[in-house]
């Protein structure tokens, strides 16, 4: 019935297709199909990349390229001008280096906790526990939330008169103004990021766990291997390719973190939770005058890091798919 309905439509398409095949030949026809997407991709992806390069090597607060002056590598030189890279106070662009340090710590902690907790959760959810489907949904639910919603939820929980402090006071403990302490603010930024994204990585690891053949575990049981040994010698090695993919994906996502932390803490207290994307955003768009050059240079440095991380991911993926 359906076929009968759509066949006149297919005939309609058939005619122009035959014309295009005759006009361009069968091999070049692929380009015709790709053209609309290439145009969109070129306009909204490649062109901005090229523009970013142009901005990084030019100065002034003007937005139109023809009004900007060429400054060579000055924007990069200023960003990288440091007496001691471990001490942002010795750098010309101290806020950039604070954001680099924060981002480095953020990805170490966030990725560490993310992978560890996702693995633990996946292991638990892979067992035959009661209400397994419900718990899988619960852990995945935060992934569906908008980053701003995640930030606001935790902001309300952690504010001076928030639910967490009410709970602490209810059990006789002193309340804490979490967002005034740089260490607590950083901890909660990592926490909310892990909470928001853990479900996604748990799902990947769960799929990895379910792909491990059952007979390997049966053999382990026959050999009287204890659960810890089974985990260490069977689960972990066989899950390693999936783990590596998760690790690299989490790493890239960690470097790109902006929205939830920005909406949560505004990068504060001071610059304690300012991550590199926030630095780029504030330098290029929220400040005055808008320093498009330094912002573009910083984003190119970030892009370089992301290219390296993506390369690692591709290498790992190829290696694991080749066995």
């Amino acid at each position: 019935m359906l076929l009968r309905l759509i066949s006149p439509l297919m005939n309609l398409i058939d005619l122009p297709m035959q014309f295009l095949q005759r006009r361009f030949g069968i091999t070049r026809l692929a380009w015709v199909f790709l053209l609309p997407n290439l145009l969109l991709f070129g306009t909204f992806a490649f062109l901005p990349i090229l523009l970013n390069f142009a901005y990084a090597f030019t100065g002034t607060d003007k937005i139109l390229l023809m009004e900007r002056s060429f400054v060579g590598t000055e924007n990069f030189v200023q960003l990288l001008d440091c007496d001691n890279y471990l001490d942002p106070n010795t750098c010309v662009r101290d806020l950039f280096w604070r954001s680099v340090h924060n981002t480095a710590w953020f990805i170490v902690l966030q990725v560490g906790f993310m992978v560890g907790l996702s693995l633990l959760t996946a292991l638990v959810l892979n067992r035959k526990i009661r209400a397994r489907g419900f718990f899988r949904a619960v852990f995945f639910f935060p992934v569906l939330l908008s980053p701003v919603v995640v930030a606001l939820i935790w902001k309300w929980v952690l504010q001076r008169n928030g639910i967490l402090n009410a709970g602490l006071e209810a059990v006789g403990l002193e309340s804490v103004v979490w967002m005034l302490d740089r260490h607590w603010a950083f901890f909660w930024s990592v926490f909310l990021s892990v909470w928001a994204h853990m479900g996604f990585y748990t799902l990947i690891l769960l799929a990895g766990l379910q792909a491990i053949p059952r007979d390997v575990y049966e053999a382990a049981v026959m050999d009287a291997a204890n659960p810890w040994r089974t985990f260490r010698r069977i689960t972990l090695p066989l899950l390693m390719p999936t783990m590596l993919v998760v690790l690299v994906l989490a790493l890239i996502k960690g470097v790109q973190t902006f929205d939830e932390v920005y909406a949560f803490s505004g990068g504060g207290p001071g610059s304690a939770t300012t991550l590199i994307i926030q630095y780029i955003y504030e330098t290029g768009f929220a400040g005055a005058p808008r320093l498009f050059g330094p912002a573009a240079a910083a984003s190119l440095l970030l892009a370089l890091l992301l290219v390296v991380l993506t390369g690692v991911q591709l290498w790992i993926t190829r290696r694991s798919s080749n066995g």
């Binding site: 103004v177 967002m179 005034l180 803490s265 505004g266 610059s271 304690a272 929220a286």
Partner: peptide, 14 residues
């Protein structure tokens, strides 16, 4: 009130 200036950062208005 330290919360106003001390609890945020960057150019965020509070």
């Amino acid at each position: 009130a330290r919360d106003v200036w001390g609890a945020t950062g960057g150019t965020t208005y509070q």
